[in-house]
């Protein structure tokens, strides 16, 4: 289990990286934290001719307040997100989800850009960004474009990024007042990819009426899925246990997950509903308490 041969470049600026990708296109692979790419190389499941390592581009690692929300440089380590006070304050859902990713040593290297670009539908952060309705900034020598999360994730391990594009920034809206969020998942073991994971956000008006709700489910399809048809039930309501159970039932109903080694389609379908109910309940509790 040793990587195949490749050429290696470690540019120190985004521009230099883009030039390299412009030159090598599909033959190149971008290396960020390496916590998914390196296993694939060691197993020789991918064999790029060229590796463009972004780790030397310090300018891509940042957490910046932006429009009430956050702008996160693609090379920001998951560990930095976990520890950041501004992340906890503005996008608590991110801070809630990150501890579910692998283990400390993985998060020390793993980056937000890397996990989004890898686009494993069972991963935590793609679901979080989807639930939040975040946007992703892609750059190439051809220019820059901004995609909403639901257009970025295309299929299993596939995104809308072109071979010469680099995901450089993730923009997340901030949580308003009386907004609560929660991340819940079931995995075979702590730190494993989710069998099912749910990211939930709920906002309440002054009278505890739900003004906004969003749930994204990981592990139940080729991309993280927003289940707006189900969460719509909550809008204008003062949700109680029965409403949440009904939302859960609808979430479950609308999914047709694939089976794999670790869980059947039926399992994922059923548990997605359970976790949606539980995560929404947790998020509501926080929203009622003022938010977080």
């Amino acid at each position: 289990m040793k990587p195949p041969r490749f050429e290696y470049f470690d540019p120190t600026t985004v521009e230099a990286a883009l030039d390299l990708l412009g030159e090598h296109g599909e033959n190149a692979k971008v290396l960020a934290g390496g916590q998914s790419l390196m296993p694939l190389l060691n197993f020789r499941l991918i064999r790029p001719q060229v590796l463009v390592d972004l780790n030397g581009i310090g300018a891509l690692a940042y957490v910046r307040p932006c429009d009430g929300g956050l702008a996160l440089g693609a090379l920001t380590r998951q560990r930095a997100l976990e520890r950041s006070a501004v992340v906890r304050e503005r996008c608590p859902l991110v801070a809630q989800a990150v501890p579910f990713i692998g283990h400390a040593a993985i998060r020390n290297r793993g980056t937000i850009g890397g996990t989004l670009a890898h686009a494993d539908p069972a991963a935590e952060l793609p679901a979080v960004v989807t639930a939040l309705g975040g946007t992703l900034v892609l750059r190439s020598i051809r220019g820059e474009r901004v995609l909403p999360a639901d257009r970025f994730f295309v299929s299993y391990l596939t995104t809308a990024a072109a071979p010469d594009e680099i995901l450089v920034e993730v923009r997340l809206p901030g949580a308003g007042s009386r907004t609560g969020s929660a991340f819940q998942e079931v995995s075979r073991r702590h730190g494993d990819f989710a069998l099912v994971g749910v990211a939930a956000i709920v906002s309440l008006g002054a009278d505890d009426v739900c003004t906004a709700a969003s749930v994204a489910v990981a592990g139940v399809g080729p991309v993280p899925l927003r289940v707006d048809d189900a969460t719509r039930l909550l809008l204008g309501e003062k949700p109680d246990e029965r409403t949440l159970a009904e939302v859960g039932r609808r979430v479950s109903e609308q999914l047709t997950p694939d089976a794999d080694l670790h869980a059947s389609s039926e399992y994922r379908k059923q548990v997605a509903g359970v976790l949606a109910r539980r995560a929404l309940g947790e998020a509501l509790g926080k929203a009622r308490g003022g938010g977080a």
Partner: peptide, 13 residues
């Protein structure tokens, strides 16, 4: 200063 998996890093990194 950070614990890392040395099987997931290239020596050149």
């Amino acid at each position: 200063g950070a614990a890392v998996r040395s099987c997931l890093l290239l020596a050149v990194q």
